[in-house]
């Protein structure tokens, strides 16, 4: 029998491979390449120096947007950045961790993160459990609880900025009711400003958590409920000792989603407080943006963004390991 030449493996399913080129480029160049670039250059003494746009053709001088925030509005102008190749080891990181603005950012993130996690999980679960009681108007309630998620952080932030405005908002209304000394001005009080942002964040995000939890509850075998009813176990006990343990995967996934979302917190702060009063509501994502594009200190921006990456990896890697470690291959 004549043996025909084995076709080149590279050209098998050629169309499929050609079609996947955008994905491959994205994965390799953007998600892998850009991340590595950022990490590598966070060890250099790169800086940004204001220069005129496109004045130089040097590959390592980059026109980047500069934000002129003079009047509170963000506007971007072009300046030229200097990416330096001289390595300075951990100098950028040492400087980063001795900057009070960064420390405040991290503290804010920690407070916002912990509160946001706890409250979204608890509120989300309780609301889901209430909606799961075979009630009437379930769809109406769900639509109401979820609609804020359709809105952008900018819109959310601006609405709550208005609601929390001490001159016109909630504080004024309570005072008008006769409580003259009532104070509730989180956005103007550096000590509690992060909670003001938290209120808006929870308003926007809990609907989603509720939906995920509701899906998880619906996924639980109806027979569990029948069995506990026959056994005469009170509903709250069934929830705590049977249902919640069964929903562990849903909780873990939700937790990872909330957590990786928290690290990206940025637009909401911009809209609500622009980081103020002072630097009281700074967050890491904003710090990075400011260093990169505003304060002309690229090295700091790169180092801070690398720290953000480390933070996310600390959340995602253990989760991915737990979730997919056992059965590898399938993502």
């Amino acid at each position: 029998m004549a043996q025909t030449e084995r076709p080149n493996q590279l050209f098998r399913n050629l169309s499929a491979k050609i079609a996947a080129i955008p994905m491959i480029i994205t994965a390799v160049v953007v998600f892998f390449g850009c991340t590595v670039w950022t990490i590598v250059y966070s060890f250099t003494k790169s800086k940004l120096l204001p220069k005129k746009i496109f004045e130089t053709t040097d590959l390592f001088s980059i026109p980047v947007p500069e934000w002129i925030a003079s009047d509170g509005a963000l506007d971007i102008w072009m300046i030229t950045g200097i990416v330096e190749k001289s390595f300075v080891g951990l100098a950028q990181y040492e400087r980063l961790w001795s900057t009070s603005r960064w420390i405040v950012s991290i503290e804010n993130l920690a407070i916002y993160g912990v509160c946001s996690l706890v409250f979204s999980l608890v509120i989300g679960f309780v609301l889901a459990a209430l909606l799961d009681q075979k009630i009437r108007f379930e769809n109406t309630f769900r639509s109401i609880l979820l609609y804020p998620f359709a809105l952008s952080f900018i819109v959310t932030g601006l609405v709550w900025q208005w609601l929390l405005n001490p001159e016109y908002g909630v504080q004024k209304i309570v005072r008008d009711l006769g409580f003259e000394s009532f104070t509730f001005d989180p956005l103007y009080n550096p000590d509690i400003v992060i909670y003001g942002i938290l209120i808006a964040g929870l308003w926007q995000g809990t609907g989603l958590i509720m939906c995920l939890m509701l899906a998880g509850l619906r996924g639980i075998d109806e027979d569990i409920w029948k069995a506990s009813r026959v056994d005469g176990i009170p509903m709250w006990k069934t929830y705590i000792f049977v249902v919640i343990p069964m929903m562990r995967p849903v909780f873990v996934t939700t937790l990872v989603l909330i957590a990786s979302g928290i690290v990206k917190l940025y637009d909401l702060v911009i809209a609500q407080t622009s980081g103020g009063p002072g630097i009281a509501s700074e967050v890491p994502a904003k710090y990075v943006m400011d260093r990169m594009f505003l304060a002309q200190n690229l090295g700091q921006g790169l180092a801070a963004s690398t720290m953000m990456l480390v933070l996310v990896l600390a959340i995602v890697i253990p989760w991915a390991y737990l979730e997919f470690g056992g059965k590898n291959k399938n993502v």
């Binding site: 390799v28 953007v30 998600f31 950022t38 990206k264 994502a285 953000m308 996310v312």
Partner: peptide, 18 residues
């Protein structure tokens, strides 16, 4: 490539923006 892509979904945009 798909695994890189999915991991990419978790990387903060700030890391890749510059």
């Amino acid at each position: 490539f798909f695994t890189i892509l999915i991991f990419g979904a978790f990387i903060p945009y700030q890391v890749m923006i510059y």
